[in-house]
Simulated assay, not measured.
Amino acid sequence: MKKIAFLATLLFFQLTSAQDSGTTQTASSIELKKNEIKFDVVALIAMSKFHVSYERFLNNDFSVGISGVLNASNKNKEDFDNGFNETLPQYEVNPFVRYSLSKSAVSYYFVEAFISVNGGKYRELRRFTEDGYGYWDAVEDNYTDMAIGGAAGYKLYIKEKFGIEVFVGVGRNILNMETSPTYVQRVGANFGYRF
Rank of each mutant, 00 (worst) to 15 (best):
T129N: 08
F167D: 04
L88G: 00
V170F: 09
F57C: 00
G68L: 05
Y157K: 04
E140K: 12
E92C: 05
L175V: 15
R56D: 01
E124N: 14
S180C: 14
S100F: 06
S53D: 06
F96Y: 13
D61N: 02
G169L: 02
P89W: 01
V69Q: 01
S73D: 05
F110A: 08
Y154N: 00
N59K: 06
R98P: 01
E178F: 07
D61I: 09
I174R: 06
V106Y: 05
F96L: 01
T179L: 08
E55G: 04
F84Q: 08
D79S: 12
V168L: 14
R56K: 08
N71V: 06
Y157I: 00
E124F: 05
P89R: 02
N85V: 12
I158M: 12
I164S: 03
R127T: 07
F62E: 00
L125M: 12
G169F: 07
S67R: 03
N85M: 11
K103V: 02
A147Y: 02
N142E: 10
V170A: 13
V184P: 05
E78V: 13
I66A: 10
D131C: 08
L70G: 06
G149A: 09
S53T: 11
F110C: 04
N74S: 08
P181A: 07
N94H: 11
N82R: 09
W136H: 07
Y108P: 00
N74K: 12
R126H: 09
R56H: 14
G68S: 12
R126Q: 10
N118T: 13
Y109Q: 02
P181E: 13
V93M: 08
N74H: 11
Y157C: 00
F84P: 01
E78K: 14
V93T: 11
G169Y: 08
I164L: 15
G68D: 08
I174N: 10
T129F: 07
S104I: 12
P95A: 11
Y108K: 02
M177D: 14
V117R: 05
V93A: 12
